[in-house]
């Protein structure tokens, strides 16, 4: 059973600049939540706080997993409960893709059956089995992004856990981005709590179960993407005159800037 992840009264600032203002959200497992907002709205900062990453500034309020503050978790136990895909992941020394994915099994050493199976399954899920032998520097941006995602998947517990991603589709072309987003939906459906920072509102509309909109560090909207991302909110938050395009069945296709 995947625990619930929540933050209450979360504020963060660097010097006099507030990055987050009193954000309180309770995230439910088995849901694909997306974090939206203009540049500098505090999306990555919030995701880092949810992941238990330290801040360069000051942070107040609490992030809890299963009702327990992240700081009170044993680091190894926490590593077996959530995985993170950063915006620009690091991988030293020209690791081969399969070695990188294997690193996701480090928190599980000695606790589970052969790590190769998990690494194998993770690579297959992101459609990167054929890249297993390649070294990271030889991969394209999109290929590397998928391998890093596979590393995080290999880290997740069998019952689901939490997967936090900062702009997982930024380096991907259209088809690959769709593929990753469908994978994230599937993961959520199978019990993983997925939280992803996205820039493309259309992707959020098409795939996410829940949209959280941040502006200037404050949560300004929270709900089903199709309810939240209306013309008024988009205009207010992004300060852009935009409209939502719908398909024949009335499903949202994306947000298009108006001319």
């Amino acid at each position: 059973m995947t625990l619930s992840l929540a933050c209450a009264g979360l504020s963060e600032r660097v010097g006099a600049t507030p990055l987050l203002r009193d954000v309180s959200v309770s995230l439910t497992p088995a849901t694909f939540s997306v974090v939206l907002g203009p540049n500098g709205a505090g999306k990555s900062t919030w995701l880092r706080a949810l992941a238990g990453e330290p801040t360069v500034g000051e942070r107040s309020g609490a992030v809890t997993l299963g009702g327990r503050r992240l700081a009170d978790w044993d680091p190894g136990e926490l590593a077996r409960a959530r995985a993170v895909v950063p915006q620009r992941p690091t991988a030293g020394f020209a690791l081969a893709a399969w070695e990188l994915v294997g690193l996701g099994r480090l928190p599980w050493r000695g606790l589970t059956a052969p790590d190769h199976d998990a690494a194998e399954a993770a690579l297959a899920r992101v459609g990167a089995t054929h890249l297993a032998a390649r070294r990271l520097p030889t991969l394209s941006g999109g290929e590397a992004a998928r391998v890093h995602l596979a590393r995080a998947l290999a880290q997740l517990p069998p019952e689901g856990g939490w997967l936090l991603l900062d702009e997982p589709t930024a380096a991907l072309d259209l088809a690959q981005a769709e593929r990753v987003l469908r994978l994230l939906s599937t993961l959520a459906a199978s019990g993983v709590g997925v939280v992803a920072v996205l820039h493309d509102l259309g992707q959020a509309l098409r795939h996410a179960d829940r949209a959280l909109v941040l502006r200037d560090g404050a949560l300004v909207a929270d709900g089903a993407p199709a309810d939240v991302l209306n013309r008024a909110l988009v205009a207010e938050v992004w300060q852009a005159d935009a409209e939502v395009a719908y398909d024949d069945e009335g499903l949202p296709l994306g947000v298009l800037p108006s001319r």
């Binding site: 992941a51 238990g52 990453e53 330290p54 044993d74 680091p75 190894g76 136990e77 926490l78 590593a79 077996r80 959530r82 995985a83 993170v84 950063p86 992941p89 690091t90 991988a91 030293g92 020394f93 690791l95 990188l100 690193l103 996701g104 480090l106 928190p107 050493r109 590393r151 880290q155």
Partner: peptide, 20 residues
């Protein structure tokens, strides 16, 4: 040896794998 492996993913990556 294992924490040093985790550090291949950088400081943040190592922390996410349970390493200080």
């Amino acid at each position: 040896r294992e924490p040093l492996d985790a550090l291949l993913l950088g400081e943040d990556g190592a922390r996410q794998l349970g390493v200080d």
